[in-house]
Structures are given as C-alpha cells and as structure tokens.
Simulated assay, not measured.
Amino acid sequence: MPLNSIRVLDLSRLLPGPYCTMLLADFGAEVIKVEEPVKGDYAREYEPKLDKNSAMFHSLNRNKKSICLDLKTTEGKDTFLKMAEDADVVVESFRPGVMERLGLGYETLRRINPRLVYCAVTGFGQTGPYANKPGHDINYLSYAGLLNLMGEKDGKPVVPASQIADIGGGALPAAVGILLALFEREKSGKGQFVDVSMMDGVISWLQTLLPDYLATEKAPGRGEQMLDGGRACYAVYETKDERFIAVGALEPKFWEAFCHVIGRSDFIPLLEAPLHEQYRLKYEIQTIISQKTLEEWVMLFSEVEACVSPVLTFEEMVKHPQVAAREMIQSVKHSGLGSVKQIGIPIKLSETPVKIETQAPKLGEHTNELKPEKN
C-alpha cells in the first residue's frame, strides 16, 4: 500500500477532514480518529443509521481507527502529545486558534516532532479578516462568486446537491497538500504547516469563468455561459415521461450528430449563435425532446456519438454497467451488519491496487490499543 508507513492523527469531524483522511486511509495510512468521549464525531448521529452510527459515517471512516481523548484535560493533552511524537500527519478542522488555546498548536507539536506535517482545513484559512468567521459549504460558494452563477438566467441561485466547497475546495486540496508536504519531507527531513481554505479552493475551481473576467472585467451572467446551461448544445431537456436527458454536444461533430438525430439539420450552423438565438434554440429543442420518452431517446442516441446521456436516479446509477465495471459501489463485510454497500475508491493504481479493508470504528474502539503507556 502506498501510504502504509504513514500515521495520521485525525481531529476533524463531519465531512471535509474525514473525506481527506479517508483517501489517505484507503491507500494504507494508519488513520487514527481522535474523538471526544461520549459523542465523538458529530456525523455518527446523522440519519439514517446502520447500527449506532450513520450510513455517512460508515462510508467516510472506513479503514480508520478511533481513540477517545478529552483534549481539555491534562491527561488527554499529554496523551495526544505523546502520540504526536511518532505521528507523520495531524489533520484538524477547528477555527484558527482553537488548537493553540488547547496547548496543541502547530508550533508546540513541531517542537516535539519536527517531521510532522500539520494540515488545518478551515472555511477561510488561517489569515485574513474572515479567518475566524463561521461558515458552511453554501457560504464558501457564495463568497467565491460561484453560487451567484448557478441556476437559470432569470431564476435565483441554485444550491448544489453535493458539497462542492467541503470536498472539492477543502478535502481534495488538503489531501494533495499533505502528500506534497510528505514528498518534500523526504528531501528536507522537515514537516510543515498545510493551510487549506475551502473558499480558496472554490475560487481555484473557477478556471472556465474567472480568467475571462480578470482579463476583461466583464462579469458573467447566470445561465449565459458555455458550460452553465446557457447554450443549447450544453443543457438539460425534459422528455415526454417527465424524465431528463443531458446534452453536452459542445464540439461541432457532436452537435451535428445531435441535430441529425432530432431531425433538425438546420440547427447545425447555429452552434455558436448569439445568446438570444440560443434561447430560441433551447425552446425548439425542448419541444422536440418532449415528444419522446427517455427510453426512446436513449435508444436513438445509443449508437451515436453526440454526448447525450440520461439523467439517472441513484437507483439507476448504482446498477449501471459502467459503475459496476469501475467498482464504484462495493459490498463490504461488517462484523455486526453482514454486508454493507459503500462508495468505491475513485483512484485506480496499477501496481498497488487498494480495497476497503476494515469497517468504520466504533467510538473509542482502539483507545486501549493505541493509548501510549505512561512513563
């Protein structure tokens, strides 16, 4: 396993930090969840539950261990400091200053372990006037300017169903930052502080929108861009049976094939038509798409390269042959529940393939095993 010599102390809760450490655990790192006694990670309490813990908790915390420590007590702090002496990575998602007030901040930990990589995942980062502000995914999207561009032209901004800032802006950059710091440590022998802001991460995702504004100072409008549903060739259309198809016919060859299938070859020259013409095209295409069911359109496009796909439900997605071939839904053995279905691992390595080895830990399950002996 690529990371089987790496020990991670994970103080994070809920989604961003645990997703980051899940990636590390999946690839062999020994990830130890350091949880407060009694309640532990708040995500344990979410519904629906599989046993005493939520389905989401089981998914995010597979391949990990759990130890209970009260970091507000001298004993808890001393135990954590002792564990940090041999750790490679610490991950936390508190607001800036919390770990320092506990006496467990980066400067303290680096003195006892100069090789330690310390990663803090926060909403706004460790610096700046908003560093100590609270927030959630929707707030980071709004400050980054992305939420303003999500939705139809004349509608209000649409909240995404999955957490873009938490995972894309926080968890993934954190995992990359940790791996970069570990890689650099091989050369210098020193660890470092990895400062990840979820708002920063979202801004960095705006590669198809923000560079144009920075160059022209012309603000983009909601529902008016190439990839946000403003163009007829890149949009969602409703079928006769109140289902939907997604059309991504951006390139001329795909657009041409799409137009032939819907019987409107006269639309082919209008791929790059002005915005007002795009609205007319979308209206006319919607009229055509609404004349057949989803299954009928899927059959018509099945042998045509036009980048057209059905908008699947979860029930359909988990049974899809491509999802099955990529093992993105896996059945995992659980000592108390039998077989549990979980989300698979998205990174496939040819020489060191990985799998889900162990179930999510019970609260404090490994406390006795992992707690250092007193001198």
Rank of each mutant, 00 (worst) to 15 (best):
K282A: 06
Q330T: 15
E251M: 04
K374H: 12
V91K: 03
D200F: 11
R44K: 11
A246C: 13
K292D: 00
R101P: 04
T208R: 01
V247K: 08
G40W: 09
V318T: 12
R7N: 12
I343S: 12
M150H: 01
L14Y: 15
L209I: 15
E47N: 13
S93I: 00
L141T: 15
P310Q: 09
F267W: 03
E152I: 09
P252K: 05
T367G: 05
L60A: 03
A219W: 08
V308H: 00
Q291C: 04
S54D: 10
N113I: 09
K362D: 08
C68F: 03
L180T: 13
P211Q: 08
V202I: 15
L349A: 11
S265A: 14
T352D: 10
K82H: 09
V308Q: 00
Q278K: 07
S335Q: 09
I178S: 03
I329H: 02
A144L: 10
D26W: 05
P220C: 08
C119N: 13
G336Y: 03
V117K: 03
L182Y: 02
E242G: 00
S204E: 02
Y106D: 02
K240L: 12
G40E: 10
K64S: 08
W297M: 00
I112H: 06
N375V: 10
A87C: 08
G128N: 13
L172S: 11
T122H: 06
C307G: 05
L14K: 02
D78S: 12
T367I: 02
N4C: 11
I268P: 07
M328H: 13
L209Q: 15
Q342S: 13
Q207H: 05
Y283S: 10
L11M: 07
P274D: 15
F94T: 05
F267T: 06
E305H: 03
S197Y: 08
F267S: 06
F244T: 01
I6V: 15
D200W: 06
V311W: 02
Y130I: 02
I329Q: 10
L271A: 04
E85P: 01
A55S: 15
